[in-house]
């Protein structure tokens, strides 16, 4: 099997290039992360990528595989056809090989105040929340910050400094939907304006690529509805 991988080491390379590797005896259930690990172990120690849990919960190994952003550890080779091409997540500065600088992505995440805002005194026990209220968080709280969505979004590519991007907006929705949160007005005020929220043009790449099967696009739609009510 032939695997073509994006390479760039700022210490030695003038420009990035694609490098081909060959691997034998690859079964269709093999995950892409295992291919990368094998290449690093057997052929080329200098190949660099992030990885940790290996089971799709830590979000370290988001990368662009055959044109689509995915997590390497839960992408089986069998889904990819004969040849495999692996590139870093698009639109972000490349640090080295498949490792990108996610500073802007994390900045946007921090900007939406991704924590519960409450004004009331805290009860001695848990705050009550009905199962139905809790259900509204399903599909929102599971985000692993892998950046697959935001780095597949053309609006985020053009305005990564101004548009919050799907991952950060999903977080905003996670707190706006939480029956315990009392920061609705301040959250919506923060998102108002031409860029932060409204640069989303419902292209839906985010939903298409999310490896956790979340739907940022739908979540953003809900924020827009809330915003409308908030303004009028």
């Amino acid at each position: 099997m032939r695997i073509s991988i994006y390479r760039y080491n700022p210490e030695t390379d003038q420009a990035p290039y694609m490098q081909d590797y060959r691997l034998d005896e690859v079964s269709s259930e093999t995950m892409v992360l295992e291919l990368l690990t094998r290449i690093k172990a057997e052929q080329d120690e200098s190949l660099s990528f992030r990885r940790s849990c290996g089971e799709g919960v830590c979000g370290s190994d988001g990368m662009n595989i055959n044109g689509k952003n995915r997590l390497a550890c839960i992408t089986p080779v069998g889904e990819l056809g004969e040849s495999i091409e692996i590139r870093p997540l698009p639109g972000m500065p490349v640090i080295r090989d498949l490792i990108v600088d996610l500073s802007q992505f994390y900045h946007q995440y921090r900007s939406v105040k991704p924590y519960l805002i409450t004004h009331d005194a805290e009860p001695e026990i848990e705050r009550l929340q009905s199962p139905q209220e809790r259900d509204r968080l399903d599909g929102l709280y599971e985000c692993i910050l892998c950046a697959c969505c935001s780095t597949s979004c053309p609006s985020f590519w053009w305005n990564p400094d101004k548009f919050r991007g799907p991952a950060a907006l999903l977080q905003a929705a996670r707190f706006l939907e939480d029956s315990r949160d009392q920061g609705t007005a301040e959250r919506l005020n923060e998102l108002d304006g031409p860029y932060r929220l409204y640069r989303c043009h419902t292209i839906m790449n985010c939903t298409d690529v999310c490896p956790k099967h979340l739907n940022p696009s739908e979540a953003i739609g809900k924020i827009k509805k809330k915003m409308l009510k908030h303004i009028i």
Binding site: Y115, L116, T118, E122, E124, I125, E126, R127, L128, Q129, S130, P131, E133, R134, L137, Y141, F175, D178, R180, D181
Partner: peptide, 20 residues
Amino acid sequence: LVYELEHAGVPFSRLDNGKI
């Protein structure tokens, strides 16, 4: 400590009476 986590926002699953 668990109540503290709940107050901090941990999305615990809930029982019909609204408790954790």
